[in-house]
Every structure is written in structure tokens, then in C-alpha cells.
Amino acid sequence: MTTGLGILVVVLIAATAFGLYRRFTDGHIKGVDPVSDAPTHDGEVLSAADIGEPLGERATLVQFSTAFCQPCRAARRTLGEVTGMVEGVTHVEIDAESHLDLVRRLDVMRTPTIVVLDSTGRIRRRAVGAPRTADVVAALGDVID
């Protein structure tokens, strides 16, 4: 009984802390330093061949999804909405499971992961978890020169 109670308490505290942490960090769009690690990371620039579709004229929103991912749908809707609002921006959804090479190259650990490419295909922003529309628009404002 006491062992079980101890495990129960630890699990509930740890899960609550993890859940709160995720609630505050999920979907945040982070900048990718374009200078410091650019020459070493070959994942830095994506081509049309990499993502299987032509790059957007001004920016591309690349979303990694899997079939067992609930928030991927919300992310798809948000990014679709944004591409409708901002001209020259396209949304490309990639099935992570069938593109494991790209997943490894970009170190995608869970879905949805979204990378924002500029007009040349360089990765400028990254988000894990479904982002909010306003944040995506703001990120595009920074990426589109």
C-alpha cells in the first residue's frame, strides 16, 4: 500500500509538472540562428526535392505530421488559414513516417513540428506543437524581407 501510494504521488506530481510545462511551451515559434551553425547543419536549407513540393515564393510552412497525432489537425487548419491570408506563402504537410530521413536530418522528435522556410528554403523558425495563428503571422513577418 505504501509503495503504491508513493508511486501514485510521484506520478501525479511529475505528470502535472510535465503537463503544465508543455501547456506553456507547446506551439511556441522559436528562431533558428541563421549564422552560427549554418555551415555545419546540412538540414539548414531545404529544397523542393526535400519537401516534395515547390517552395513558396516568399516563405514555406513545412509541417511534419503522423496519423496518430490529434493537434496535427489543428496545426493544418491554422497554417492553411495563414497561407490564405499571406500571399506567396505555401503550406506543405509531410507524413513524418514516410520521410524518416528528413525527420532524422532535422531532428524531428514529435508531431506536429513546423519549420518556417524563407524564399531560399533556409529554415528560419521552428515550432513543436500546434502554433497560434497570430504567432505564425508574426514569424512570417520576420522571415519575409
Binding site: T3, A14, T66, F68
Partner: peptide, 30 residues
């Protein structure tokens, strides 16, 4: 008890935070 505790953590995160287990582990497993 450890195995049940791990299942409990996932169920609790699902109930309380709408946590998506598939998002976390499916791609890692693949």
C-alpha cells in the same frame, strides 16, 4: 506497480491536459 504507474501518468495527462500520446512516442518508435 511501476508499469501501472506509467500507464497512469499517460491517462492522467490525457484527462487533465488533453495530452497526445501518439504525438510523443509514435514517431520516436518509428
Amino acid at each position: 506497480q511501476v508499469a501501472i504507474g506509467l500507464a497512469l501518468a499517460a491517462a492522467f495527462l490525457n484527462a487533465a491536459f488533453n495530452f497526445c500520446l501518439g504525438c510523443e512516442i509514435y514517431l520516436l518508435a518509428r
